[in-house]
């Protein structure tokens, strides 16, 4: 293994993903080839529906791909079973979500300690770690509050502390500043940058927040499920809908349904969905 390969922490090859709503295909990723190196503060940028979250979910093992490979820390996460993925995430990946997603019935401290306990640490040890990380994200004094007693920014800091508490090698953050005001958002970006530099944790963030993009050590732009611009990646040529969403990948009953759905009705359904999403 070369030195260049050793530093590669995430690698995807020809990653395809298509969502189906009834008989209508919604292509999400068109053959993504991406390499993220250890210690990067990489940002996936692009408009809504460009495939940022889908890519992040596949890398995090929360979703499967239709085709291609996604190696994280040298292991193909797509070939793992659900239980294996859970274990892998617990050890190696921390998540920060747009909507914070804390467990409502647990206090801030317990939310952070929960993942440590899942890792096998004792309750006492887990609570100590939780206190440490809450101090680290500057809300140590709010540890006993429940999520609904915290502001959005404070909840996101708890989420960051939870993501870091297991000392993962990678943190995947999906629109972490989207629900925060600009000042709180900037504070969060500074915090993540500081942690990236001091702990050398790799950050892969999906965002269309200009402040986040500005802070990136590497910016990867996605459009319609393809990388269109990256400081390292070569933009890929556009691909056809049939190439990303081949009907043969669908179950037999779905294919049959597709065959018998009148095209006019399908177009009508599509228009309705488009108008709902716009």
């Amino acid at each position: 293994m070369s030195e260049a390969n050793q530093s590669t922490i995430i690698q995807t090859r020809d990653l395809h993903k298509c969502y189906w709503v009834g008989t209508m295909p919604y292509p999400a990723l068109h053959g993504i080839d991406l390499q993220i190196r250890s210690g990067e503060f990489a940002v996936l940028a692009g408009r809504s529906g460009s495939g940022k979250s889908t890519l992040l979910n596949i890398i995090g093992g929360l979703e499967s791909a239709d085709r291609g490979q996604a190696e994280v820390l040298g292991e193909d996460i797509l070939k793992m079973g659900n239980s294996q993925r859970s274990k892998f995430r617990l050890t190696n990946i921390g998540f920060i979500f747009q909507a914070y997603n804390l467990i409502r019935v647990l206090s801030a401290r317990e939310n952070v300690a929960y993942v440590c306990q899942l890792q096998g640490k004792s309750k006492q040890q887990s609570l100590e770690i939780a206190n440490h990380w809450l101090h680290e994200v500057e809300i140590g004094h709010l540890g006993y509050r429940r999520p609904d007693q915290l502001s959005g920014g404070q909840q996101q800091r708890v989420a960051v502390a939870r993501a870091l508490a297991t000392e993962p090698k990678i943190i995947l953050a999906d629109e972490p500043t989207a629900n925060l005001d600009s000042t709180t958002g900037r504070h969060l970006i500074e915090l993540m940058q500081r942690l990236n530099q001091t702990l050398e944790t790799t950050f892969l963030i999906s965002s269309h927040d200009p402040d986040v993009k500005q802070a990136a050590s590497r910016l990867i732009k996605l459009s319609d499920g393809q990388i269109v611009d990256s400081w390292d990646e070569i933009p890929q040529p556009p691909r056809s809908l049939e190439a990303t969403c081949p009907l043969r990948n669908r179950p037999f009953t779905e294919r049959l349904r597709h065959l018998f759905t009148p095209r006019r009705k399908a177009r009508q359904q599509n228009r309705q969905r488009t108008s709902r999403h716009s």
Binding site: S83, S86, R89, L90, Y114, L118, R162
Partner: peptide, 11 residues
């Protein structure tokens, strides 16, 4: 979320 942050499905 619980599954995403590493809780095993059997738990």
């Amino acid at each position: 979320v619980m599954i995403a942050i590493g809780t095993q499905p059997h738990r």
